[in-house]
């Protein structure tokens, strides 16, 4: 941040801190979180990776050298390198791997984002209701989530996808169908802790309704934890999406997805390692970035480190 000219006298420092202009006080707070994240080695690396992937995904049509599904049988299985026109080589149909990896990032990020959005809204909503009101609703949800948790996640989603068939929306629904449980459990536990805090009593004494207490008082106090969980879970969701696409149950084959690219390349692994390996590296890198970012956020958003 740009430094305003501050009198060198140490005595003025306190006064200047409180007398800073109102708008920049807001900005300072926001920058504080960002600054701490950038000072956190893992968080910074994760943020850079995630932003890089997101930018590439958004700009995909502008930066890809080829259409992702352009077949060129004459140059099939071209190895990566600068001598050919395919930087990362081509697959068994001569499709440009760089373009396909870039388009594949769109699928992974979109599925991850959509799943996390649906899961967190449903999970946090139900978790807050269960944690706040308790009673029958809480007991019913507890049994239901225990039931869901009894199935291994991947097997569960494979089962649903086998019934519903491959497809983007089906995949998002199938992943969300169990993905909300983690958010539910976090939100429920946090709500049960927060609802006994005195500021909730104070809000009630001000005539606040239960709905307003949940949304305006309790939710802001757990937003950080939800953000961290969401970031960490998004990496998992991306892995799940790729696993399902690998099995041919996720994204339909005509859309380039990392999982199905790895599945395709498997057969050529000995002669043309790059077909399966490069999307795998992209996947690993993005998931690593999401996890680093999540852990960085967790460290940075720790309320004890809040300084304003």
């Amino acid at each position: 941040m740009g430094h305003v000219s501050v009198p060198s006298d140490e005595l003025y420092k306190g006064a200047m801190a409180t007398a800073r202009p109102a708008e920049s006080a807001r900005a300072l707070h926001r920058r504080g979180t960002m600054r701490r994240l950038m000072a956190h080695g893992g968080g910074r690396t994760g943020l850079i990776i995630v932003i890089a992937f997101a930018t590439v995904a958004i700009l995909a049509p502008l930066i890809t050298p080829y259409a992702p599904d352009a077949v060129d049988l004459e140059s099939w299985l071209t190895p990566p390198g600068l001598e050919s026109n395919h930087l990362l080589g081509t697959d068994q149909l001569g499709r440009d791997i760089l373009s396909r990896v870039i388009y594949g990032s769109r699928v992974s990020i979109l599925v991850g984002l959509a799943t996390i959005c649906i899961s967190s809204v449903v999970g946090v909503g139900l978790g807050m209701l269960a944690g706040y009101y308790g009673g029958v609703l809480d007991r019913l949800l507890a049994r239901f989530t225990e039931l869901l948790l009894a199935f291994p996640y991947l097997i569960f989603v494979i089962g649903i996808m086998a019934i519903m068939g491959p497809g983007f929306c089906n995949l998002v629904w199938a992943l969300s169908f169990k993905g909300w449980v983690e958010f539910y459990r976090l939100a429920r536990a946090l709500t049960m802790a927060e609802k006994n805090r005195e500021y909730v009593d104070a809000a009630r004494a001000l005539g606040r309704s239960n709905g307003a207490i949940l949304l305006r008082e309790i939710l802001p106090n757990m937003a950080n934890s939800i953000l961290v969980l969401g970031t960490l879970r998004m990496g998992n969701m991306i892995v799940m999406e790729s696993s399902l696409s690998f099995l041919g149950l996720g994204i339909p084959p005509r859309i380039p997805a990392w999982g199905s690219m790895i599945a395709d390349g498997r057969r050529y692994m000995l002669g043309a390692w790059w077909v399966a390996t490069l999307p795998g590296i992209a996947l690993a890198l993005l998931v690593l970035g999401m996890n680093l970012l999540g852990e960085g956020l967790r460290d940075v958003l720790d309320p004890k480190m809040m300084e304003g």
């Binding site: 009593d201 104070a202 004494a205 005539g207």
Partner: peptide
């Protein structure tokens, strides 16, 4: 609820916990 806060207001013992930190 329309009486609370509007006609009868309350001040709590420990302001540290009675103010919402967020």
């Amino acid at each position: 609820r329309s009486v609370r806060g509007k006609e009868i207001a309350m001040v709590f013992q420990d302001p540290m916990t009675a103010l919402n930190p967020a």
